[in-house]
């Protein structure tokens, strides 16, 4: 896990969450912007998966439980597509809020993943 990349990812997830929450509460339907924000969150997670798979080979191994790390990562990967699917099926303001909830949840999970990789087990 690359620490600065993870912080950037966390920032993007929180920003996407705030964006969707504000636009949703303002009454906006899911748009290219909000769905796109979730797509970006998902893309960063996929990159994180690739990094996590490769990092141990370069001497950057998790300090904590590998199983727990990947459980979080796989769960997080499921959230943006599920929220986006919902947003496409039900186009109203609350689906935009749901996109925000998913992005925030990804943020929390990424933070936990960082803890597991860097401080757990030390």
């Amino acid at each position: 896990m690359i620490e600065w990349y993870t912080w950037v990812q966390l920032g993007v997830a929180v920003a996407a969450g705030l964006l969707c929450l504000v636009l949703g509460l303002a009454g906006r339907q899911p748009s290219d912007l909000t769905i796109g924000a979730l797509a970006l969150v998902e893309l960063l997670l996929v990159a994180q998966l690739v990094v996590a798979l490769l990092a141990p080979a370069f001497g950057n191994a998790p300090s904590g439980s590998v199983l727990e790390f990947y459980t979080y990562l796989v769960s997080a990967l499921l959230l943006p597509p599920a929220a986006a699917l919902w947003a496409l099926l039900e186009r109203n303001r609350w689906s935009t809020v749901v996109l925000g909830v998913a992005a925030f949840a990804v943020g929390v999970m990424v933070y936990r993943m960082l803890q597991i990789w860097t401080v757990q087990g030390l």
Binding site: S65, E68, W86, W94, S95, V97, V101, A105
Partner: peptide, 28 residues
Amino acid sequence: SGIGRVLVAVYGVLALAALGRSFVQIVQ
């Protein structure tokens, strides 16, 4: 409908989180 969707979404996330954590705890 309405805000209930958000409630379901939060429930879904909590269910996923609890399931994931419980899976790790039981396996490990």
